[in-house]
Design a protein around this nucleic acid. Sequence first.
DNA 1: GACACGTGTAAGAATTTACTGACACGTGAG
DNA 2: CTCACGTGTCAGTAAATTCTTACACGTGTC
Lengths: 111, 111
Amino acid sequence: MDSEDLTGAELLAVFSALANPHRLRVLGALADGRQYVSLLARQLGMSRPLLHMHLQKLQAAGLVAGELELSEDGKAVKYFAATPFSLRVTPQAIKAIAPTLPGPDDRKETD
Amino acid sequence: MDSEDLTGAELLAVFSALANPHRLRVLGALADGRQYVSLLARQLGMSRPLLHMHLQKLQAAGLVAGELELSEDGKAVKYFAATPFSLRVTPQAIKAIAPTLPGPDDRKETD
DNA sequence: GACACGTGTAAGAATTTACTGACACGTGAG
DNA sequence: CTCACGTGTCAGTAAATTCTTACACGTGTC
């Protein structure tokens, strides 16, 4: 996943997802390998609902991917892993995507 | 300005500064050359106080630099230009700076 | 059944961010 | 003096994020 093919709105979603210490720590924890939500929450010292929200935002930005599995003892476990993205951020790159940025009057269409 | 020598808090400030369409557009407009605040505000269609606030945040993150000059007709004019930064963002890079991220109990010390 | 473990989601409070409007200052031109 | 242009900042409001608490479901074990 290279960054050149991102629209302004997508890049904005990525930066917004990255603009939070919890989410950066989550992404760092998932850099090596995948992990399931409850354990990850314990490792990072945050509540499950909170981690759930942050994972949603990271997933919406395409930075992590989750898949629901069935463990051997029958429990539903959801594993998340970091997407192997590589972003190059420079003033010129930002200028290039600037025309595709959402205007001040635009509404959210993520529904 | 390479990104390898940024702490977690600094990188967080950069992402936070980038997580806004207005600021991305400002950065894009300043990618080529410098411009002064009032004219820039008119070009981007936003109020001066608002642009002022966004420029403060961009400057605090080290993405733009401003210098106050005296134009030939004696007026004080403040020019801003984009810092020629180059950021490489990957899960591994984020994991590397994760230990230096501000904890949930930390307070702002930017006073 | 009661418990421990996993999942998800919804309501409400607390906090942060974004924005407007009005004010301050200083200079040159009419 | 008044107007146009530049600068900056403050108070108050509107809106978006963040976070907690509490609930829902399903499964295997004592």
